[in-house]
Design a protein around this nucleic acid. Structure first.
Lengths: 195, 195, 195, 195
DNA sequence: TATGAATGAGCCTTCATTCAT
DNA sequence: GATGAATGAAGGCTCATTCAT
């Protein structure tokens, strides 16, 4: 089992295929055709069709969160960090529309993702958002009594839904344009009065 | 086609089954067994398995939005309407956990819902939220320059994610308790400065 | 799951198909075609292809041993019982050549039969032979020091091989004709001297 | 095709693998791994998986019969020859349990062996036994009217079954100990009265 | 010669849907 | 209308065999 590019090629093909048809309506042979290989070859690199999906999600999500974490570290304060995070969220998904399609629309198969194998990658994202909020609370820029967990879910859900609508709307406008309004509303919602 | 209760019995059984196993991992025969009827009988009332899902979603969503619309009509101003809407959203799903499970986790099979057959029911909910926001803008209680569409998606996404987390967290706490924090943060985020 | 004849029809079709091609070279669809049903129907009555084979073997073997046991009970003494057993063994397999083919040639897939699920049915046959031999020893007609277990295996193996040769020789002669010579040689071999 | 040891290494590996899992449940790659070579290499020496099995059986059987033939030639009379043959049969298989497992339990795939490609090697063994019996008849030590063919099959079948039981019984005792009882019973069965 | 990644035909099994009763 | 046995198309996965290196 040598070719170190094959798994990535397969993942990439799977992203496109799943984006097009959804997981359950995609055949392993579709992925193979998209990747330009024989269907049996896929099984040299992945044990099952499910494993493709899980691997794909984990990898993309981990990369996504990793980039976000690094980028926002350079920002001076929690509000700036949140603005950057929101912007990057939208920019990244806009730059990878197939991925966005998969993440937004297809990977919501209960059990399989938020529960189960990929829960860790998702909670890493929640942790990242939560830590920025917590930092802001402690720095006194966000409401002292801010329910951090709820706020975290709200921001994630808000970005998620804006992205979903963009994907479903066939991406007829610039997703990144939503970054500023979203950040504004959310920040205003959590910022301490008198600031 | 006589029995006017059958379709409802089937829908109700389907909600429970889908909540348990997801749409693609549920058999038509599972729904039949849950409903206490023969699997062939289902086809007297629904043309395909997909149709069960679509009907189920449409019906539940329409009922949900209808109740919300009526309830918030009695509230005096847009902020009060939003508070009531948020509270009812959480209370209703908490009272029907099976339904919540289906809506939150299983009905996200792209293509099939937000796009496609059920788009109308979903946009009815968006319209309801949007109209309250618009009303508030016009009344001067919400920011004059509020991007209503984005804010609408944000609120829906925020409620949605809070509910999803609750469902996935095995419902270990009161969902309705999230109503006030969510409403507070969102309202603060959209309210006009100086009020 | 009603039709009480289906399992038998499937078993009978399987006997013919396995006899023709062997277990591993037979498709479930071959059995279905032979039985005149759809291949999916087989799975209403058997969980797996393996289960067909095991069931088939158990049933045939149990019936076979049951008949033998009843028939030899009527014989006056152990030698007569053995003669009758040998004769019936050959006559029965001659009357059911498909069955003979399966039992003799195909069911010898190690692990699966002599070991495993069908061991019980086979040992029932051994027990039957062994009990007649033991009876003869105790009655003084067979050698007092006869190693009953070894002798049991010898008789079974002898009959088995004679049958196998007959099957492989495309059954070009009467198998039942072998009954007397086999019984003669074996009885002479185990009978107490001086009788 | 250079390396003259490879085919033998492959055969030996195949014996071990088939003994462990049976022919149909063994992969060509299993044999390769056991032999310490790449699976493609096997196809430099054997055209198909079947050919490995056939070659293996032919070679082992031919060697087996060759040894037996030479060894019994030194014995003074037919009964002594038979005793020696029976003893060697058991001793050889006891010394090569892998081989015994393959021959006894796995190589019984009808069609493929007793019929077909290996028929010649098997009949060589039958011929050997038969010639000894015939010799004994002509020498007057065995029954003048002995049905030699049937008796041949009986002895082979008897030894075969005793060995099979030993293999299946996980070889919990000395197989060679069965040589004397088997020879005794069989010889008594075929010996001319009055001797 | 040796390798082992790649191939793709083939098969067991599932399950939505039909239809005779 | 109701049933549930029967259907058969479809697809995930395996593995003998090939072939570029």
């Amino acid at each position: 089992m040598r070719d170190p590019d094959k798994p990535q090629q397969i993942i990439d093909a799977a992203v496109r295929v799943f984006a097009r048809n959804g997981f359950y309506n995609s055949r392993v042979s579709d992925i193979a055709r998209e990747a330009g290989i024989a269907s049996g070859t896929i099984y040299l690199y992945f044990k099952t069709k499910d494993e493709i999906l899980v691997t794909l999600f984990r990898e993309k999500m981990a990369g996504f969160v990793g980039v976000l974490r690094k980028e926002i570290a350079g920002e001076p304060d929690p509000p700036a960090k949140l603005r950057r995070l929101v912007r990057l969220h939208f920019e990244t998904l806009e730059a990878h529309p197939d991925m966005a399609e998969v993440v937004q629309v297809e990977l919501r198969q209960g059990q399989k993702f938020f529960r189960g194998a990929s829960a860790h990658e998702i909670s890493a994202y929640f942790d990242l958002i939560g830590s920025v909020l917590q930092e802001g609370v402690e720095a006194g820029v966000f409401r002292r009594d801010l329910p951090v967990k709820v706020a975290t879910k709200m921001l994630f859900g808000a970005m998620d839904q804006v992205t979903t609508s963009w994907v479903l709307g066939k991406r007829g406008y610039r997703l990144a344009d939503a970054a500023e309004p979203v950040a504004n509303i959310f920040l205003k919602g959590v910022t301490r009065d008198g600031i």
